[in-house]
Design a protein around this nucleic acid. Structure first.
Lengths: 264, 264
DNA sequence: GGCTGGCTTCCACTGAGCGGAAACCAGTTA
DNA sequence: TAACTGGTTTCCGCTCAGTGGAAGCCAGCC
């Protein structure tokens, strides 16, 4: 063995993928050294693989020498989850047009909500979520709704973990949260008040598919509108019903792949 | 050599990437055999690599055994081109709200236009474009606009190729096309009439950044509205100006990576 | 002109990858 | 029930692609 830090048993594939995964942690472009560090690879190895990824268009090199995810990757990934996003998009837009507030479409992956789509106006609201981003379920309205209507074992498994606290207002007591979820199931919607980020509150309703909870749509508003949030409920419910109708024919598994399955 | 069909010199990386690339050609899920075929790999090799990709969440396996691009890839890719898309999104939405027609945001990659964003209503129009999809520049309004305002050498290089014909109305004569581009540059907008697909026409205007053509926004309409298309010009120009203002501060290269550079 | 931090190239050793073959596993037909 | 079919999974010994330390390179800075 040449030097000592060889790490046998590591597949080439895992090295390539960990290079791509390096871009998950940080926005923006990375230098070769950054990539090598984040992916835990020797510099020369990283160099060789990064070059090959660049040739294939999966990474792109900026004029300043740093690397960024290539546009080919983006093109490729547009195919994922297209069914649900494409079908729901016009309705999420309507939701925004009718309320004037930032509108979200989210599903569950494991223990988190994944934001599938997001429609907002040019007057920007401070945002915690972003398309393709995740947040914990117990701190968001869309998350709570999904959790509330999920099967028992999913909910139990979720509550059986340490619940992360984002602000002073995040509900992290499992007992109280369980009670809240019951109430959400009864009233058919969930709200949050500064539980992810100070200054904003949110309200969400479920979107069902073949009898099961499939997704959730919600609005995020500035805190000062918290008291009157529920006035948006009729619109939310109307739009949810439309999305349910529009997606009813598409089999659940092709809507978003089979990602909704795993609990982690 | 074991059997004979070993293909020496092929890197593992290229094999992994060609598996991902297999999903570019076809929508929908692929069986292992499909993947092996499309990527030109022996079945057992494909099997091993596909498994590893699945473990990493870059592919996902549906209940029926077929494979689909994993959601992790989608999450990852959301970071690409985020700047332009995020900044422009609200305005593209406005464009749709104000006109009621399918609105597009597109940029150039190589010899094609790449659709970055797309806003449309629930009354679906037959569509040739899709987000993440490409079309030739000479057959689309957004493409013609970009080509018209590009630097000379880009335009010359483009016209110097065999121009693909999509319908009987596609303009494929280089001379005539060059004249058309000159006119587009003078009048500040481009139109098409059934040049990609029968039944639809389109109109587009340029979006500049630091003096150069950066992107284009456009509308697609049913052919019967072709005669009155230009009534949307004021809105198109207004929205373009707003996008220019919103993106002016962001350096061009971070807007979409450095993909705009290459001519292939 | 020497230093520093990052990128690129080189090359001989070696274990990860290879892929043909055979087993396996539904469906489906005889 | 058995044979067939089309796809998936497992196995294993050979071998060459991958490896990564080291040295060279380059640009900017003190």
């Amino acid at each position: 063995m040449a030097g000592g830090s060889r790490e046998p048993g590591r597949t080439v594939t895992s090295k390539v993928l960990s290079i791509l995964a390096a871009f998950e942690q940080s926005r923006g472009a990375l230098s070769l050294t950054d990539i090598a560090e984040k992916s835990g690879l020797p510099l020369s190895t990283a160099h060789r693989l990064v070059n090959e990824l660049t040739d294939w268009g999966f990474l792109s090199r900026e004029p300043n020498g740093r690397y960024q995810l290539g546009i080919r990757l983006w093109e490729l990934a547009q195919n994922t989850g297209r069914q649900l996003r494409d079908a729901a998009r016009p309705y999420v837009q309507d939701l925004f047009s009718l309320t004037g507030e930032t509108a979200h479409l989210a599903v569950r992956t494991g223990h988190e909500v994944l934001y599938i789509d997001r429609v907002y106006g040019s007057k920007r609201v401070p945002r915690a979520s972003r398309v393709g981003g995740r947040l914990p379920m117990h701190a968001t309205a869309v998350g709570k709704v999904i959790l509330a209507f999920e099967e028992d074992w999913v909910r139990d498994a979720y509550l059986n973990r340490q619940l992360e606290r984002h602000t002073a207002h995040t509900h992290v007591d499992p007992k109280k949260l369980a009670a809240e979820l019951t109430q959400i199931r009864e009233q058919g919607y969930a709200t949050t008040l500064e539980e992810v980020r100070l200054g904003s509150c949110s309200i969400a309703v479920p979107v069902f598919h073949t009898g099961r909870i499939g997704a959730s749509i919600g609005l995020v508003l500035p805190t000062n509108q918290a008291a009157t949030m529920t006035r948006h409920l009729p619109v939310l419910r109307g739009i949810a019903a439309q999305i349910e109708r529009a997606t009813a024919r598409i089999p659940l598994e092709t809507l978003l792949g089979s990602h909704v399955a795993g609990t982690d």
